[in-house]
Nucleic acid binder design. Structure first.
Length: 166
DNA sequence: CGGGTTTGACCAGCGC
DNA sequence: GCGCTGGTCAAACCCG
């Protein structure tokens, strides 16, 4: 490994939470600074349980309630477990289900949109973002819920190699 | 001017 | 082997 990351996701899911660069509480607090949210929704953040799709074969980090993070380790391989080779391919995947009318949610990072795609089974497009910070290859996927258009599903992939701006 | 968005095209993985 | 679907690139455009 030529590049050295201060944060190495060598640990499994639960440990990864400890080194999550972003304060999850940031999502719940809007009292110190209200410059990031319009006066649209009185409750901009309502996180709900994210349903794991059956086609996912990686260990996902699902955010349940605001009091706990549910780590969902699922080896949906034919053997029922994840080999080392597969684990290496697996990246940190965090799915957030947020109730918001706007999809441009400032989470403390600068994102650059690099793609938009229309996914089947959903009339809503899916937006692809990437962290603008040099060296940080964190990707983000924003898409609206199929059943509830008022909900926005944000999926983070990777770990930030730098602190947030907040 | 410089960076970010936009948009279609391109590509890779998977299923049939 | 082909077609579908999802993911990324990149050129042009837009805005501060």
């Amino acid at each position: 490994m030529t590049e050295k990351n201060p944060i190495q996701p060598n640990s499994p899911d639960t440990d990864f939470i400890n080194q999550w660069p972003m304060d999850l509480s940031e999502y719940l607090r809007f009292d110190d600074d209200d410059d990031q949210w319009p006066d649209d929704d009185p409750e901009p953040f309502v996180s709900e349980h994210v349903i794991n799709q059956d086609n996912q074969q990686a260990n996902e980090l699902l955010v349940g309630d605001f009091g706990g993070i549910e780590s969902h380790l699922e080896g949906s391989s034919s053997r029922g477990f994840i080999s080392e080779g597969e684990r290496k391919e697996i990246r940190d995947k965090v799915a957030f289900k947020t109730k918001s009318e706007v999809e441009i949610l400032d989470d403390g990072f600068k994102w650059r949109k690099y793609g938009k795609k229309m996914v089947k089974n959903s009339p809503n497009p899916r937006n692809y973002y990437r962290c603008s910070v040099d060296g940080c290859q964190v990707k983000k996927r924003v898409e609206r819920d199929v059943d509830d258009p008022s909900y926005v599903i944000t999926t983070y992939e990777g770990t930030h190699t730098h602190p947030s701006f907040h």
